[in-house]
Design a binder for these strands. Structure first.
Lengths: 332, 332
DNA sequence: CTGAAAGCGCTTACAG
DNA sequence: CTGAAAGCGCTTACAG
């Protein structure tokens, strides 16, 4: 039977119930140090009976640190972050480490980002996973010497901070060659400005760089997926045969507008994580979230286990092209 | 300039740098109690210069509790949980409370669930949001007297625990009347068994109950969205005109199988949270995650602010029917 | 307005 | 194998 106020039970109460000291109760419960089997059993039973839940703040303060890894995440409603979150969680479970997550949604001022960072650092996490662009290198760097930090799923400009991201140059080349192969010679690249989303910006750059021989009209817009769709379609009406988007949600917005206007144009996306991507027939790149997540967690786990790290600071993972009907051959 | 090891800086260091006591430094930094403006400024400056990040474990231990709300979440890769997570995060930001999240993915043994629960309780969170069915009432109840607990997005059998969920009876009726209206007289309801997913099970029940006058073949299966799809289509081939699914991902699996076989059959889903739900033309129910999230957070915030609660323990929110081309009129 | 002291709940050498 | 004591870093009455 659990006590009426289980969270009020202290180790002292457990110890007293058994007639031992706090130190002994601690040893029994943590299974560390020499302890008589009989004593351990009695303590364990008492703890269970009293519904003892150790106060983690006290435990970790006394023990001098957490074994937990902190994760800073961005809006999970976005399938990209949802999938990444999930993959990180899975990787952490496999590696046997616990994850504590703090999310920051849309936050223009950046105020909440800093708050989240301080909360995690304040918890003295053993490692930090940063899966948002909202907090930049300069904010992270001062702590890099203290706690291992890995940026995941996004590029990291600073060499002082490790990163497991995606090989967007490769992905851009994948998409570009498909575009060219299908005969497109004039396209519009629809993406975000560097300030809005550095990740999307870089994708746009990669795409443009890989599109040699194709006339490119570049459109950079705000964060809303619908931004710039009108302008893109105007371009399409003026002769561009495809609208290349730097994220799947942007492509969905394009498809939506296309459907509304009853006009046709080819399009591509970037992510490949939307649940019905196959049914929607999206041509896109499936970004390797699982690889990046696994790599990031095991990198951190390695550091925590005290293994020497001989890894390059930044690694980029390669996904694959998904070919769907949204990008079809150009009619001549 | 930040120190080389900012996380090693204690309030004592800050206090010494300024030449005041720890108590004064605390007051200056927390802005509580009477303090000279000049002193406060000097302390604040020193803290910034030293890169002081308060040790939250010590802070909260000394202060006797957190102001943080804990969230237990299930796999965020599922758009349903991703959307709920995001809505909770938004609601928390609005209410000015911080959220700390612990996720449990697929966990057959339930071991990680318990661990996650203990971690959150061990952190002495001020309130607990439970957005997973993985931890049951019996596990929660012992703590309900100690910390306010709200289950969100899922039904809660125990009256001792508050819940903000969805009015699935209403949703079932919405779908059923649409099904009937379009002339379907023989359908299959494809969902999960009670053990696999209590939520989906309940949806199935609600649907069947609302389908009076329609011949229903009920298929309950495992957790994998693809489970039972084959059997459902066999039913369809045998004369059922629609496959009603208790989640959108299940419906996607049905659509996929249908496309693969080149056969046709109507279908419905349940969630309405998949990003391209409109483009996919899904007929489904858009579940009111935002309402439930908002209600759950403000209920907790209310308790934390010490407001008397005159709310019913369980509330259910109503979403709306999304009509798409996946459910069409029956040809005669 | 400020400081000395006690205490939050737990852990960990150090003796025994 | 077990206990007394010191300490983790911070806060909060209590005096002044």
């Amino acid at each position: 039977m659990a006590d009426q106020r289980p969270l009020g039970v202290r180790i002292e109460d457990v110890a007293r119930a058994v007639g031992v000291s706090r130190a002994t109760a601690t040893r029994a419960l943590r299974g560390q140090g020499r302890i008589a089997a009989a004593t351990r059993e009695r303590v364990e039973r008492a703890a269970a009976e009293l519904g003892y839940v150790p106060n983690l703040m006290a435990t970790e303060l006394a023990a001098g640190g957490t074994g937990v890894i902190g994760l800073m995440l961005r809006d999970a409603a976005n399938p990209v972050y949802g999938a990444l979150f999930s993959a990180l969680e899975l990787a952490a479970a496999r590696a046997g480490v616990e994850l504590v997550t703090v999310t920051i949604g849309a936050d223009p001022g950046g105020e909440r980002q800093v708050q989240a960072l301080r909360r995690l650092l304040g918890m003295r996490v053993a490692g930090l996973l940063v899966a948002t662009g909202g907090v930049d290198s300069a904010q992270l760097e001062p702590f890099a010497a203290e706690v291992p930090i890995v940026r995941v799923g996004r590029p990291e400009p600073s060499a002082a901070i490790a990163a497991e991201s995606y090989d967007e140059e490769w992905h851009g080349a994948l998409l570009a060659s498909r575009v060219r192969e299908l005969g497109h010679r004039r396209v519009v690249v629809l993406g975000a400005s560097a300030e809005t989303s550095y990740g999307e910006h870089r994708r746009g750059e990669a795409l443009v760089a890989a599109l040699g021989g194709v006339a490119v009209q570049r459109l950079t817009t705000g964060p809303d997926p619908g931004d710039g769709v009108g302008a893109a379609l105007t371009e399409a009406a003026a002769g561009a045969t495809a609208v290349l988007c730097t994220s799947d949600v942007r492509q969905l917005a394009v498809l939506r507008a296309l459907a509304a206007r009853g006009t046709g144009a080819a399009s591509t996306g970037w992510d490949g994580l939307t649940p019905g991507v196959d049914l929607l027939g999206l041509t896109t790149v499936r970004v390797p979230v699982e690889d990046a997540a696994e790599a990031a967690v095991s990198r951190l786990a390695g550091v925590l286990d005290g293994e020497a790290e001989a890894l390059p600071a930044h690694r980029a993972w390669r996904g694959e092209l998904l070919t769907g009907r949204t990008l079809s051959e150009v009619e001549r």
